[in-house]
Amino acid sequence: MYKAKVNVTLRPSILDPKGKATHHALQNLGLDEVEQVRIGKFIELDVNANDEESARAVVEAACSKLLANEVMEDFEIELE
């Protein structure tokens, strides 16, 4: 059994209004050192596969078919 951790983030060229609003709130808290906030999604998958390579292939398919919309989002996969 493999555990996959997937991070889905808005592509850098795309404005992130939720991140901007959160950044404003952090500034209001006085945390001026924070220069930018980008908000994404974190998804955990338990994958039943024989080896790491096939587990990765399954998770990649899940990401590109459903978990991320590649018109506007990127994804990163971490397997353990």
Binding site: L15, P17, V71
Partner: peptide, 17 residues
């Protein structure tokens, strides 16, 4: 229809949230 690929592009949250 956008998610289905029948139309091009995607939808994001309204700019002012």
């Amino acid at each position: 229809l956008l998610e289905s690929g029948l139309l091009p592009g995607s939808m994001m949250h309204n700019q002012k949230l």
